[in-house]
């Protein structure tokens, strides 16, 4: 029997993987994709909980998360291209002048 708990567990695992990925990867696009992974994991959790309670609110929220994620990707990638055009580098470590 697969209960929503299993889905939540899977969601947790995917979330952690995505989180570690954000910390470890240097390419900006890959970092973005790890963030997307985290968002997806959260979506899964929402939907699982919707199933648990027997309501649709979780799905609606997952829907909205999707919308917001899309908007975020759009803007983020636009920023990335703008930066890339001038700096010719997509590494997250390069803009490091705001330091001690």
């Amino acid at each position: 029997m697969i209960s929503p708990g299993h889905y939540v567990a899977l969601s947790v695992i995917l979330f952690v993987i995505g989180g570690v990925g954000v910390l470890v990867r240097r390419n900006a696009i890959v970092v973005f994709m790890c963030v997307e992974l985290m968002l997806n994991a959260v979506n899964l959790a929402f939907v699982a909980f919707a199933r648990l309670h027997g309501t649709l609110d979780g799905q609606v929220i997952a829907f909205f998360v999707m919308v917001v994620a899309a908007a975020e990707v759009v803007v983020g990638l636009a920023i990335l291209t703008a930066i890339f055009r001038t700096r010719r580098s997509a590494s997250v470590d390069d803009p490091n002048l705001l330091k001690y």
Binding site: V24, R26, D93, P95, N96, L98, Y100
Partner: peptide, 9 residues
């Protein structure tokens, strides 16, 4: 202040 490494990561 050495915490402010400048690295986003």
């Amino acid at each position: 202040r050495r915490l402010q490494t400048g690295f986003v990561r």
